[in-house]
Design a protein around this nucleic acid. Structure first.
Lengths: 211, 211
DNA sequence: CGTGTTTTTGACCATTTGGTAAATCCACGA
DNA sequence: TCGTGGATTTACCAAATGGTCAAAAACACG
């Protein structure tokens, strides 16, 4: 039968690799690549530094592994945007998914933001190979919807940018938001605001008068 | 007459301090605080490392100086929002100012983003002391406009967040945008998109039908 | 020019940090 | 029970890095 190659990854190996990646996500997302130290990751993971190096070839490899996994997670919501669905519903659902991710995966969002902020030194190939084609495809889908009169005409590329910017903001700038909202949980109000904003932007034709 | 205290800052001192801060802005905004090294800053400034330490007490002080200056620059556009002006015009002008800043001061934007991303360890007091009161005040102004029926009713806090997010995105995520737009200059199209988006969001009552 | 002051530098230091090597531990099947 | 291979640790290292210091150089100015 298949899967006969010598023990791929033992139980303990899987557990420890996952631990390390989780700890590294904590540390990298909080301090950036250069600001993170192996000692911090080791402590957070509850392992010794050399033990970490037993599972990964080095700091760089941990980071790269994290970024690779992240890329998938990051593309998922955009992939889920269904060209056959109702246009406005699809886009608003996409906004909601992205907003939920900011609430549920803030570390991932900040890891990504850190990487892009510094010029995407390690992620640039991924962006070109994975994100760019999907982005182009989704732009074409949205443009088709607009040409069919199902959505108001705006630049689809900047529409997507604005969705990314507004949703990820709640994870990436959390420190600032906490100060300004005095700790109040922002996601519910943000959701309502963003749904309104993008519905108003994208609804073609007349708008119903306010009460 | 006043200003008699012994030589405050010589010509050369001013020049070198400015050089250092400019170089430090380059390096800090590109690599974050911990990722930046004094050697990099020194090289970029065209000075020796000990000479840098002659003008500043240390890496930390350079960073703090930069952040202090940045805070003023950052608040300016929001301060310029005139409570006596025409509401929609004022807000759209604010959006444009912020967008122009992303184009003209991307390093400052990224320095700020880096600091907030890492939890605002050094800027938190500034945020509470300077940004928070201004934010609250401007929220009140906008809310008053809305209550007077001059703007559509939305949460002013999230409105401001969305303006920050969408405009700063073009500086902070420049690396990603360059990949996706294949180097095309984004600011003009972004301006048109954002003006449309916020006008549609904030215009009270009916919207004119499309052509 | 001479002298006191500011600026600059070369040599150095202590700590941090990513990484290595070898010894040790330990789970588990024969 | 013992051997064996994977897992873990202890002790290190070399490079990078923030920072110091005393001396040299440059400069201001009477």
């Amino acid at each position: 039968m298949a899967d006969q190659l010598p023990r791929k990854t033992s139980r303990i190996q899987q557990r420890n690799r996952r631990r390390i990646l989780d700890a590294a996500l904590d540390v990298f997302s909080a301090h950036g690549f250069r600001g993170a130290t192996l000692d911090q990751i080791a402590e957070q993971a509850g392992l010794s530094k050399p033990n970490i190096l037993y599972y990964f070839d080095g700091k760089e490899e941990i980071h790269v592994t994290l970024l690779s996994q992240l890329m998938e997670t990051w593309l998922d919501p955009l992939i889920a945007l269904d060209p056959a669905g109702e246009p406005l519903t699809e886009i608003l659902a996409y906004v909601q998914r992205k907003l939920d991710m900011s609430r549920d995966l803030p570390r991932e969002s900040r890891l990504f933001a850190n990487e892009i902020l510094q010029g995407a030194p390690r992620m640039d190939p991924h962006l070109r190979a994975d994100l760019k084609p999907l982005f182009d495809d989704r732009c074409a889908v949205i443009r088709a919807w607009m040409d069919a009169g199902q959505l108001a005409q705006v630049d689809p590329r900047h529409l997507i940018f604005s969705i990314w910017a507004t949703t990820q903001h709640y994870a990436d700038f959390q420190a600032q938001i906490e100060v300004l909202l005095e700790g109040e949980e922002p996601i519910d109000a943000a959701s309502q605001f963003l749904q309104t904003m993008f519905r108003n932007l994208l609804t073609p034709g007349q708008r119903t008068a306010p009460a």
